[in-house]
């Protein structure tokens, strides 16, 4: 019997290895981009073939941004990474030497083809009357947000809350107090943004979800989406999810050309329009104007101007012993 099984396994192995000859591209991405990239990949393939190339098989992997960066460092052979924040892609340079230090200068707008921000998703009719960040620290309000250690979105959430408190109270100590209070209202930290959305939307836990704007719009679009409303706070952060070619992997696999074309296409008008249709804020001014009505106008701080970039914010807030550890352990 075992011999027959071995034969079967060998056969299946041969089948599995069969179609590997065509060029493949692996895009390792973060949680909420599933819908964006399944649409974009099809469009890119059409564009790529129209230029006289063979079709390329585009593989997708999704998960919490930090976790995904870790997997690429540990040997997941991504040709391109499209993660939630620059800090995670920096790790590819620091820990794995997979990309050069100046990776962010290689593409326009600091390698960020689309942006987003952090908004609130509340239950229909907003029963807890949540209008701004102050309402999140009130007793009895349950806030759903993922774990900043593993999720990029969660780190944007954290910084948006921090930015608000810092502006309002004018001191770091007060900001820390405010954010600590906010996290006392968090009953569960999922590892990724999508996990938190499922916790809030499907499992009906919590009063307010801190979410990527694109993720919040998407939740409204899904089945049962009319049970929720989006609330835009008075101030938030410009979330900039960057993209990069993973040099070490593309050079080994000989996929640099298609990988670079893939990322360039994100900046094309069609790429920008697909991003906007999936509720990401496009960089291209013409496309942005076209979709202007879709996005609430709110005051947005930036990571570079207000936090000194991820190089400074990551160690200060999120590394071991950083601000997040101190406030979360204190509970």
């Amino acid at each position: 019997m075992s011999i027959r099984r071995f034969a079967l396994a060998a056969l299946a192995g041969a089948l599995l290895a069969g179609p590997a000859a065509a060029q493949t591209l692996l895009n390792v991405s973060y949680d909420p981009t599933r819908e964006l990239y399944s649409e974009f990949n099809a469009a890119f393939n059409k564009h790529w073939q129209a230029q006289g190339n063979d079709a390329v098989t585009i593989q997708q992997s999704h998960g919490g941004s930090g976790k995904q960066a870790r997997a690429v460092i540990d040997g997941l052979r991504a040709d391109v990474v499209t993660l939630a924040l620059a800090g995670d892609i920096d790790e590819l340079y620091k820990l794995g030497k997979l990309i050069p230090e100046n990776w962010q200068e290689r593409l326009p707008q600091a390698s960020t083809p689309y942006t987003s921000t952090i908004v609130f998703l509340v239950r229909k009719g907003n029963p807890k009357g949540i209008e701004d960040w102050d309402d999140l620290v009130k007793p009895g309000v349950e806030v759903i947000t993922p774990n900043p250690k593993t999720s990029g979105g969660a780190r944007w959430n954290f910084l948006a809350a921090w930015a608000y408190a810092q502006q309002k109270f004018g001191s770091e100590a007060k900001a820390q107090e405010f954010v600590a209070k906010l996290y006392q209202n968090v009953p569960v930290l999922d590892t990724g943004a999508r996990g938190s959305t499922i916790t809030f939307v499907n499992n009906q836990i919590g009063d307010v979800l801190l979410a990527w704007e694109n993720e919040a719009f998407l939740a409204l679009k899904e089945e049962g989406g009319n049970n929720f409303e989006i609330v835009a706070p008075s101030l938030s952060i410009l979330a900039e999810p960057p993209v990069a070619v993973v040099d070490k992997n593309v050079d080994k696999k000989g996929t640099r050309e298609v990988a670079e074309a893939y990322l360039d296409y994100l900046y094309s008008e069609e790429g920008q329009r697909i991003a906007a249709q999936n509720f990401y804020r496009p960089r291209n001014p013409a496309v942005a104007a076209e979709f202007a009505e879709q996005f609430p106008a709110l005051k947005l701080l930036t990571i570079d101007q207000d936090f000194g970039g991820w190089q400074a914010a990551q160690p200060k807030f999120f590394n071991d012993g950083g601000v997040f550890d101190r406030i979360y352990q204190a509970q």
Binding site: L16, I73, D74, G75, L76, R77, L95, G96, K252
Partner: peptide, 26 residues
Amino acid sequence: YVLLFGAQGLFGEWLQEHDIQIVFAL
């Protein structure tokens, strides 16, 4: 297995040199 066979793992460098993929594959 990630610590043993991952790119940063004990056998990571050797495996990469010989183009053998163990973790994140079959």
